[in-house]
């Protein structure tokens, strides 16, 4: 009973945050609501006893990605939407089939997965240690690949950031 109330609260927080992130008119408010939705998701992970995933979600999404979104909004100076602007693009109906398709895909894969069968959770001692061992043994190749990919992305970002503006020289 207590568990269900907690789940409902977390789910309500996540959903409300996600909906508000789409609906609000001020981009900074949207970004902060998205951060709220991330935090709600982390709470759901924690409620499922997935401590490591929950904390990593908080650390990465609330601590890093939300800040990144906020910075992007501020640096592109698009925080305010003009009051006269249309509430949605004229081609909004094109999004409906795409959204339906994605939803169908998700529902199909969730229904087909074995995760719906409720099993008693295995009582694992020191789950973080096990995650580490799995990452270093069974999943070492994907881990290294992701590391390489992220390093490449980081270098790319630095290269983009370093590029000197050739055209603006005469002006200054």
């Amino acid at each position: 009973m207590l568990n269900e109330i907690a789940f409902l609260l977390c789910a309500a927080l996540t959903l409300a945050g996600a909906v508000a992130a789409m609906m609000l008119r001020n981009l900074v408010h949207c970004a902060l609501c998205a951060a709220g939705a991330f935090a709600g998701l982390a709470a759901i992970y924690l409620q499922l006893d997935a401590e490591f995933v929950g904390f990593a979600q908080l650390l990465i999404y609330v601590g890093a990605i939300a800040i990144l979104i906020v910075f992007t909004v501020l640096l592109t100076r698009g925080a305010e939407i003009q009051p006269g602007a249309a509430s949605s693009a004229s081609s909004w109906w094109k999004g409906v089939p795409v959204g339906a398709l994605v939803l169908a895909c998700l529902i199909w894969s969730i229904m087909a997965s074995p995760s719906l069968v409720r099993l008693p959770s295995p009582n694992v001692h020191a789950p973080v240690k096990q995650i580490g061992e799995q990452l270093m043994n069974q999943f070492v190749m994907p881990l290294e690949t992701i590391g390489l990919l992220l390093t490449a992305a980081l270098l790319g970002a630095v290269v983009i950031g370093l590029r000197e503006p050739r055209t603006s020289e005469p002006n200054s």
């Binding site: 401590e51 490591f52 908080l58």
Partner: peptide, 24 residues
């Protein structure tokens, strides 16, 4: 907590957002 130190840094991650909220 089994992942105590991770918890410590995870709860601290909200402070940057708070500072941004205050400034903006």
């Amino acid at each position: 907590l089994d992942a105590g130190i991770l918890f410590f840094f995870a709860v601290g991650s909200a402070s940057e957002l708070a500072v941004f909220m205050a400034g903006w």
